[in-house]
């Protein structure tokens, strides 16, 4: 499934009712797949900085939001009351990216650059202050209602009172009015993540890496069109992490989902992805989208190849240039 993410601006906490209606509308109704008119917030003394060096990401920093709808600290809202700095914390700015069907796209950036916020918006768990997300021809909230999105979080967040199998069944048990035909049965998903013999165990009896694999099986239970992964390996030790990367690659080869993978690990991003979107520090802006030409299927050992090293170096230099 095709996913198009266009986020003009995200101010954390309470956005002010949009005053700049024309700009908000322009960003709010893009055709699926086309590059929407991306509104770029322009704060006082800032130039719209969103030109992207690499293909496929089109940005049109020509529509400007009025400053008072952009949640900039210290500006006056419609009520004339001065908003606190807190309410105007800007998390994301001017991000436009299209994810192709079956593509593995990583979003790479330093901590606190709004990666998780971005993912929550795509998953329909949060609203952008302005901008839009289209998944296929639906909005994020609609896609979520139709159970088209699977989420894996940094913490496995399994329900400890349910067995492993019942945890994987949970998405099917919830909201039965919406059914997903053709989804893989939970028991088979456990086979896919190599945990079939642990079906009757409780999460507390499993290692961290195993719990995370259960989380992955749970996210796949609805046969989602789009799989969102939020630093799923961040809480794992280095050895488990490395195993999990190839495990995920194997599962992805088998399931062929469209994946949006958020990480702060350059190795994760380069090893797993078709393309890597590099975000800058807060407010998170899209700096570049780097295609990774490594051949698939990628198996253990690929991280020692010259192709990997050169791709790694390119991404690394971009990230580090941003970090300084």
């Amino acid at each position: 499934m095709y996913a198009s993410v266009s986020i003009a601006n995200v101010s954390k906490t309470f956005p002010v009712p949009p005053v700049a209606a024309p700009a908000a509308r322009a960003a709010g109704a893009p055709a699926a797949g086309s590059a929407p008119g991306t509104a770029v917030a322009a704060g006082p003394g800032r130039t719209p900085g969103n030109r992207l060096p690499v293909d496929d990401v089109r940005s049109q920093p020509d529509t400007l939001l009025a400053p008072d709808s952009a949640g900039i600290p210290g500006t006056r809202g419609p009520g004339g009351r001065k908003r606190s700095v807190q309410s105007g914390l800007e998390a994301l700015r001017g991000i436009t990216v299209d994810i192709r069907p079956g593509e593995f796209l990583s979003v790479l950036g330093p901590s606190g650059c709004g990666k998780t916020t971005l993912l929550r918006i795509v998953g329909g768990l949060a609203e952008p202050t302005s901008g839009s997300v289209r998944i296929g021809d639906r909005s994020a909230a609609e896609a979520q209602r139709r159970k088209l999105i699977g989420c894996v979080f940094q913490e496995p967040a399994l329900l400890p009172w349910r067995t492993v199998l019942d945890n994987v069944r949970l998405p099917l048990a919830v909201n039965r009015r919406v059914q997903r035909a053709g989804a893989t049965p939970p028991a088979e998903l456990l086979q896919l993540v190599r945990l079939a013999e642990f079906a009757g165990y409780y999460p507390g009896q499993l290692s961290r890496g195993m719990q995370q694999r259960v989380g992955l099986a749970r996210a796949l239970a609805l046969d989602p069109a789009l799989l969102l992964m939020d630093e799923p390996f961040a809480s794992l030790d280095e050895i488990t992490r490395e195993q999990m990367r190839f495990e995920l690659l194997r599962i992805w080869e088998a399931a062929r989902k469209t994946v949006l993978f958020v990480t702060h690990s350059i190795v994760d991003a380069v090893l797993l992805s078709d393309r890597v979107a590099v975000l800058s520090a807060r407010p998170g802006r899209l700096r570049a989208v780097v295609p990774i030409g490594l051949e698939r299927p990628r198996v253990a050992g690929v991280e020692h190849s010259a192709e990997f090293t050169s791709a790694y170096r390119r991404v690394h230099d971009l990230v580090m240039a941003e970090a300084c």
């Binding site: 929550r120 998953g123 329909g124 768990l125 979520q144 209602r145 139709r146 159970k147 999105i149 699977g150 989420c151 979080f153 940094q154 913490e155 496995p156 967040a157 399994l158 329900l159 009172w161 949970l170 998405p171 048990a173 919830v174 909201n175 919406v178 749970r218 609805l222 969102l228």
Partner: peptide, 26 residues
């Protein structure tokens, strides 16, 4: 409640009622 579990239930569009009985009560 575990915020991650809450997010997950919301991401599969669980109703408030389902969140209550499947997550909050346990």
């Amino acid at each position: 409640v575990n915020p991650g579990a809450l997010d997950f239930l919301r991401s599969v569009s669980a109703s408030r009622r389902e969140v209550f009985f499947r997550l909050r009560v346990p």
